[in-house]
Design a protein around this nucleic acid. Sequence first.
DNA 1: TACTCTGTTGAATA
DNA 2: TTATTCAACAGAGT
Length: 270
Amino acid sequence: MPELAEVEYFRKRWDSGLGQRVREIALHGEKRIFRGSDPAEIERTLRGATLRSSETHGKQMLFRFSKNAWLGLHLGMTGKLRVEPAGFEPGRHDHLVLFQRKQALVFADARMFGRVRFHHGKSAPAWWAKLPPAVTSPQFTTARLREIFLRRRTAPLKALLLAQDVFPGVGNWMADEILWQARLDPRISAAQLDAKQTREVWRAARMVCRVALKTIGVDWSDPPGDWLMLQRWKKGGRCPRDGKLLQRATIAGRTTAWCPNCQPSHRKTG
DNA sequence: TACTCTGTTGAATA
DNA sequence: TTATTCAACAGAGT
């Protein structure tokens, strides 16, 4: 499911475990979800560690524990976090379960496109420290976007919106929403954008991320009713602005929906 | 049966 | 050298 707001929502689900010690761990260490990490080390280090804090950055989550343990989770396409009673029996897709006194913190992922990362040390791991500026941060500037758009001039705009080193946390539906809010065709290349259009992408990206975090990110409630995302996957979905039938195509390898009327492929002439 | 899917990666290609 | 596309990953739902 998850893009940045959903990731934030799932992170908070584990909040009831803050300040509590992990007594026991159950994990499916042979699963692909542990690629690149050492399940035995995770088990050894997290056992007896106390969950201190958590944060998200784009689609990445970081859980900090005592004993200098850092647990990174990525939800991939189907990952979920939830809380179960302490005596819970892990199911087939519950690949990492942290048992605490009163409850169990569960990371489940059916398709296993997600990932578990782990670091044992005083300072933050490289995979966390080197993340790009968040879309909602002051470091996410129009100047930065301009520079990237000039460098990656042939990629369709949709592809750039999906690039996690440019728009961390933006996924398929958010990319379509941003393009619709900015009234830009997903197929145009970044090189075709003038300064004003670049600023529109910047503005729309920040707005969509901010509002999504305040709605979906808090309680899974819907974003404003006039957003494209509420129409997007409906059969015969229509543009919330002008009621025109949405167009669909695969762009940058992902299904894309847009309004052919208010996101025209040609440059505006006046 | 055959197609879809809110994601990322590494190999192939340009 | 650098950017981009594509298949692969794996399961559940339609």
